[in-house]
């Protein structure tokens, strides 16, 4: 993307061929297109980071001793299986995050904001409604990591 931007800014005649999306576009259209692509990539990175975060947290909860390991007792294993299935449907923002009481409350709030941002991206409303809050990949990565570390889900 950076190379493309440099090619466009340098204005080298013939450098953008008809196989490129920017072919025959004005400089401003090319700049706008690149800015849009950068923003879209940022949004998708945060979407991916949040998905990894959620999976990590749910896997951690499923492995807690309160749930217990599988036994040879069919009845107990069925109950365990149903509990684990239910846990998959716990709302990540309103239920899962607040289970981690040892995580700083402000950080828990920020994680909920990142999840709200992720939902905004995932539900495809990016062109209609503004995001509930703004963030960027570096900040989102750090705060999600801080949460997992404080929660004891991962070791620093």
């Amino acid at each position: 993307m950076r190379v493309t931007r440099r090619v466009i800014e340098a204005g080298i005649v013939g450098a953008v061929t008809d196989k490129h999306v920017f072919f025959a576009q004005t400089d401003q259209e090319k700049r706008d297109g690149l800015d849009w692509a950068q923003s879209e990539l940022d949004r998708l990175v945060i979407l991916g980071l949040t998905a990894i975060f959620e999976r990590t947290v749910r896997d951690y909860l499923g492995g807690l001793t309160v749930v217990g390991p599988a036994t040879r007792d069919t009845h107990l294993d069925r109950v365990r299986h149903e509990i684990l299935k239910d846990m998959e449907f716990w709302n990540i923002s309103s239920r899962v995050v607040d289970v981690f009481t040892k995580v700083d409350e402000a950080l828990r709030g920020q994680i909920k904001q990142i999840i709200a941002y992720r939902n905004w991206v995932a539900h495809g409303r990016t062109l209609i409604e503004p995001p509930p809050v703004n963030t960027n990949p570096a900040d989102a990565y750090q705060r999600l990591t801080d949460f997992l570390t404080q929660a004891g889900v991962v070791t620093p």
Binding site: R2, R5, R6, E9, D35, Q38, Q110, Q113, I114, Y117, P131, P132, V133, N134, T135, N136, D139, A140, R143
Partner: peptide, 21 residues
């Protein structure tokens, strides 16, 4: 200025030029 509501911050301004953002 991009937003006043930013996770963990109180506002964001982007500086954009031909080289980077």
């Amino acid at each position: 200025p991009v937003a006043a509501w930013v996770v963990g911050w109180d506002g964001r301004v982007d500086m954009t030029g031909p080289g980077d953002r």
